[in-house]
Amino acid sequence: MAKNRTGEGAEGLPIKMLHDRLLVSVEGEHGERRSGGGILIPATASVGRRLAWAEVVATGPSARQVEIGDRVLFDPEERAEVELGAKAYILLRERDLHAIAARRVQGEGHTGLYL
């Protein structure tokens, strides 16, 4: 079952995620990146719709499949950003995720747990 984690808000007040909401930390910037062959791809290069990975740092009590520490795949164009303690996070709903990557997700021939 998903755990609930509280954090500290801008004024030092405790924060509790509600319903199926997830607070995630994005891995890297959406700017320049390198291809598998080491070629630098500028942020202005258009490659179509690209999904992004992030790490879950807090979950609401109704999150059923996601746990803190999981890596999740989501569409960065469908997101809400929030700043807590001078660090930017993204607020998502569990139903908006495309995939979960976690050690507990196992099985031969499976690429992950899809929602």
Rank of each mutant, 00 (worst) to 15 (best):
L18Q: 13
E94W: 06
R49A: 11
E78P: 01
T111Y: 10
A2W: 05
E8N: 09
E78M: 14
D75N: 15
E67V: 00
G31K: 11
T111V: 07
M17K: 08
L115D: 00
L51H: 12
E55V: 13
S35V: 09
E94Y: 06
G112S: 08
A63P: 05
A102Y: 05
R50K: 11
E27F: 06
L73T: 01
R79T: 15
R79P: 01
A99C: 06
E27V: 11
R103S: 14
S46L: 11
K87V: 15
K16H: 07
V26T: 11
A101P: 03
L113P: 00
I100D: 09
A58M: 15
A58D: 13
I100F: 03
R21M: 11
A63H: 02
F74K: 00
P76E: 05
L73P: 09
I15W: 09
R93G: 02
A58P: 11
W53L: 07
E77C: 01
A80I: 11
R79A: 12
P14A: 15
G7Y: 11
A63M: 01
A99L: 13
E27L: 15
R64L: 14
E81C: 08
L84F: 15
S46Y: 15
L40M: 10
L18H: 02
I90D: 07
A88E: 12
A80T: 14
S25R: 12
G37F: 00
G7E: 02
E77V: 00
R79C: 11
R79K: 12
T59E: 07
N4A: 07
M1I: 03
L115S: 01
Q106H: 05
D75C: 08
G28H: 05
D75W: 09
I100H: 02
I15R: 10
W53Y: 10
G107A: 08
A86L: 09
R33G: 08
L115G: 08
E81L: 07
A52V: 06
Q106I: 04
A52P: 00
G28C: 03
S25Y: 06
S62I: 00
T44H: 15
L84M: 14
V66A: 14
R103M: 06
L40P: 02
R64H: 09
W53M: 07
Y89R: 03
A63L: 03
A99P: 04
A2D: 02
E78A: 14
S46V: 08
R49H: 15
V56Q: 09
R93D: 01
Y114G: 00
T6R: 09
D70K: 03
E94Q: 11
H30K: 07
Y89V: 06
G69C: 12
E83Y: 01
L97V: 12
H98G: 02
A52S: 14
A99V: 05
A86Y: 09
T59D: 06
V24F: 04
E55M: 06
A86I: 00
H30W: 02
A101L: 02
E81T: 15
L18N: 05
V105C: 08
K87Y: 00
E11A: 04
